[in-house]
C-alpha cells in the first residue's frame, strides 16, 4: 500500500505517494518541496515544480536543491507557473487534467526516467471559492491516477489564504498529510483497485466523509472500498458508507467494502448493515 497517515516530514515518499502540505509560512513549504524533489531525483523521477508567482521566484524557492541549474538545463526539472499546467480562471475538468499529467508522465518514461514527481503550490488556483468543488474532484482523480502510475505529488496549500474547512477536506483526499492545524481525522485515498479509508470516522467527522465520498471519482461498474487500515468507525460513519453504497447502486455502480476488521463486521451485523 502507498504511504498513508499524518507525517511531519516530506522525506521518504515513494513512487506513487501523494502528500498534502498545508503551510503557514513559505519557508516550511519550500523546505518540504526541496526534500520531496531531492528524493525524486534519487528515484530517477523527472521533477516538476508548479506554483503561483513568477518563474524566477519559484526557481529561487528551490535554491537549496543540489545542482539546481544543471537539473533545469538537462530537463530533469521543470519550473512552471500554474497557467502552464492548469486552466487558470476556467473550471478545472478532472479528466482533462489527468490527461495533462498522463502526457507528462509518458514523456518522462519515454526519456528514460522512472516516472514523474510534481510539487504544486496551488493556492492561487483555488482562491475563488467557486473553483473549489471542481478542484477537490481533481485531487481525487489525481490521487487515483497516481495510485496506478509512476507519479508522486506534493500539494501545497497556504492556510493563511484558504479557509480551514476547504484545506481539511482536500487534505483528506491525500494518503499522506502533513500533521498540522485543523484536519479531518481520516483520509480517503486511492489504491489501484479502488479507495482506502484510513484514520478515524465518528459522528463528528461523518459529515466530511459524506461530502468527500460524493467528490471521489467513480468510473466503471464496481468500486472497492478497503477498510483494512481503518483505525476507528462508529455507526454514524458506517451508515454513511451504507448510504453511499445505496446511492452508487442506484447509479449502477457496485460498491464493495472489503477488509473490514472483525469488530467492524460485528458492528455491521448488529446494525443490520449488509455483509461486507
Amino acid at each position: 500500500m502507498r504511504e498513508h497517515g499524518l507525517v511531519s516530514s516530506a522525506g521518504g515518499l515513494g513512487t506513487h505517494d501523494h502528500a498534502c502540505w498545508p503551510f503557514d509560512d513559505d519557508q516550511s513549504f519550500q523546505r518540504a518541496a526541496v526534500e520531496f524533489l531531492a528524493d525524486g531525483r534519487r528515484l530517477n523521477q523527472r521533477l516538476m515544480y508548479v506554483g503561483g508567482g513568477p518563474v524566477e521566484k519559484l526557481r529561487a524557492d528551490l535554491e537549496p536543491l543540489d545542482d539546481l541549474d544543471g537539473l533545469i538545463d538537462r530537463g530533469a526539472l521543470e519550473v512552471l507557473p500554474l497557467s502552464e499546467i492548469y486552466p487558470v480562471g476556467d473550471e478545472l475538468d478532472p479528466n482533462a487534467q489527468v490527461a495533462v499529467y498522463d502526457a507528462a508522465t509518458e514523456g518522462a518514461l519515454a526519456q528514460g526516467y522512472a516516472g514523474l514527481r510534481v510539487v504544486s503550490e496551488v493556492t492561487a488556483l483555488v482562491a475563488d471559492p467557486d473553483s473549489r468543488t471542481a478542484y477537490t474532484r481533481w485531487e481525487s482523480a489525481a490521487d487515483r491516477y497516481a495510485a496506478s502510475h509512476p507519479v508522486s505529488g506534493l500539494c501545497g496549500y497556504d492556510r493563511r489564504v484558504l479557509p480551514d474547512e476547504f484545506v481539511a477536506d482536500v487534505a483528506a483526499l491525500h494518503p499522506t498529510v502533513r500533521q498540522t492545524g485543523t484536519l479531518v481525522p481520516f483520509r480517503l485515498f486511492a489504491w489501484p483497485d479502488g479507495l482506502v479509508l484510513e484514520g478515524e470516522v465518528d459522528y463528528f467527522s461523518t459529515p466530511a466523509l459524506e461530502r468527500l465520498l460524493t467528490l471521489t471519482v467513480v468510473d466503471g461498474r464496481e468500486l472497492v472500498l478497503d477498510l483494512s487500515v481503518l483505525g476507528f468507525i462508529d455507526h454514524h460513519g458506517m451508515l454513511a458508507l451504507e448510504a453511499h453504497r445505496n446511492r452508487l447502486s442506484r447509479q449502477g455502480v457496485d460498491l464493495k467494502i472489503q477488509g473490514a476488521p472483525g469488530w467492524v463486521r460485528r458492528m455491521c451485523d448488529v446494525l443490520g448493515v449488509a455483509t461486507l
Binding site: 465518528d202 459522528y203 463528528f204 476507528f232 462508529d234 455507526h235 454514524h236 476488521p261 472483525g262 469488530w263 460485528r266 458492528m267
Partner: peptide, 12 residues
C-alpha cells in the same frame, strides 16, 4: 475495539 466503540457511541 468493541469496548472502544461502545464508549465512543455513548460519549457521542
Amino acid at each position: 475495539n468493541d469496548l472502544v466503540l461502545a464508549v465512543s457511541e455513548l460519549a457521542t
